[in-house]
């Protein structure tokens, strides 16, 4: 309880710092939300409330924006975020097989986070590296020309 409160206080301080750094106008909202997602993994209700005060925006506006953009999240995400390119260029070079291998290995549907909070599986639109499709992005590590049998190996690097 006490530690929760300390955590909350710390989070609020961080959020205030972020807003101070980036700005508190409407145009700053998305960059602020990106920074919060990067820092805490997701945008909590606590964060939305605090931003509502700091940026003089209704909470519904913040939620509405936060849930619109794929790179922002209002749900806690796992330790590692796997993004799989679902665009046609990756699809036609075997992406579908790789993705089902990935889903099997993780036991997750797109958008889900594993029970142990280790993995979040997301699909993404084209990452612009179509020359080496299919492409998997684990956090900031990019894997190209991935085949189904490489999936386990890739995941094992994060044990």
């Amino acid at each position: 309880m006490v530690s929760d409160q300390i955590k909350e206080t710390e989070q609020l301080e961080d959020i205030r710092e972020i807003v101070e750094k980036i700005g508190s106008t409407r145009a700053d909202l998305i960059p602020v939300l990106q920074e919060i997602t990067n820092k805490f993994g997701y945008i909590s209700q606590l964060a939305i409330k605090e931003l509502s005060d700091l940026m003089s925006l209704p909470t519904k506006e913040i939620l509405s924006v936060a849930t619109f953009y794929r790179m922002l999240s209002t749900q806690p995400r796992g330790e590692h975020i796997i993004q799989f390119c679902e665009s046609a260029p990756c699809h036609v070079v075997g992406g579908r097989e790789v993705f089902s291998a990935l889903q099997d290995a993780l036991g997750l549907e797109p958008g889900q986070t594993s029970a142990d909070n280790k993995w979040t599986l997301l699909t993404t639109s084209c990452l612009g590296v179509c020359g080496i499709g299919p492409v998997i992005l684990v956090d900031t590590d990019m894997y190209g020309n991935v085949t189904s049998d490489q999936v386990k190996n890739i995941l094992s690097r994060y044990d």
């Binding site: 145009a27 506006e61 619109f68 993404t124 639109s125």
Partner: peptide, 19 residues
């Protein structure tokens, strides 16, 4: 922040405006 639609110029403007 990850929205395919923002390539459309008015959507892009909305997005810069923080919407």
């Amino acid at each position: 922040a990850g929205a395919y639609i923002c390539g459309e110029e008015t959507a892009l403007i909305e997005s810069i405006e923080g919407k």
